[in-house]
């Protein structure tokens, strides 16, 4: 199995992250996964480059295999707020890997001066609702799904 390691993602991780995203879109569909298909390595690489110190992507590795990622991105028009999404491949869920990714992202968000994380939880994705709830986020039903807010 190897040991779990969570680290900041680089452009070199883009193909593996795109592969994880494709797997999850295939499993849940684009809406329930909150991933816009198609998620290509080029799109991921562009995203990582676009952060320019105002966000970050993190990747979870089990041995040499990348099994999950988190994206921390600036929220448009909101000060001190970042948007966080976390995705883990199905066989590796409920093992604390998503929590490790989220904690790394939260630490980075704090270092960027953020006081709040936001995100969306697609309709019907109850495991995601529980996941963010257990992190301490307050979830609210909004039109077409759920939104969460996590003070940090």
């Amino acid at each position: 199995m190897g040991t779990l390691k969570v680290r900041k993602a680089t452009v070199a991780d883009a193909p593996a992250i795109a592969h994880i995203a494709e797997e999850i879109v295939r499993e849940l569909g684009p809406e329930a996964s909150a991933l816009e298909a198609p998620v290509t390595p080029e799109a991921i690489a562009r995203r990582i480059r676009s952060y320019q110190g105002k966000g970050a992507m993190f990747v979870a590795m089990l041995g040499r295999r990348r099994i999950g990622f988190a994206a921390l991105e600036p929220a448009s028009g909101e000060k001190e707020t970042l948007v966080l999404g976390v995705w883990v491949l199905a066989p590796y869920r409920r093992q604390g890997i998503g929590t490790q990714l989220a904690l790394a992202a939260i630490e980075k968000a704090r270092s960027l001066g953020a006081h709040r994380l936001r995100g969306t939880i697609p309709q019907g994705n109850e495991p995601a609702l529980s996941f963010f709830g257990e992190l301490g986020a307050l979830a609210q039903a909004v039109a077409g799904g759920m939104a969460y807010e996590l003070p940090i």
């Binding site: 529980s130 257990e134 979830a139």
Partner: peptide
């Protein structure tokens, strides 16, 4: 099983 408490303002608490 999961269950929720949903408040009238839309806030959801899992349990």
């Amino acid at each position: 099983r999961r269950a929720f408490l949903v408040l009238e303002d839309g806030t959801v608490f899992t349990g």
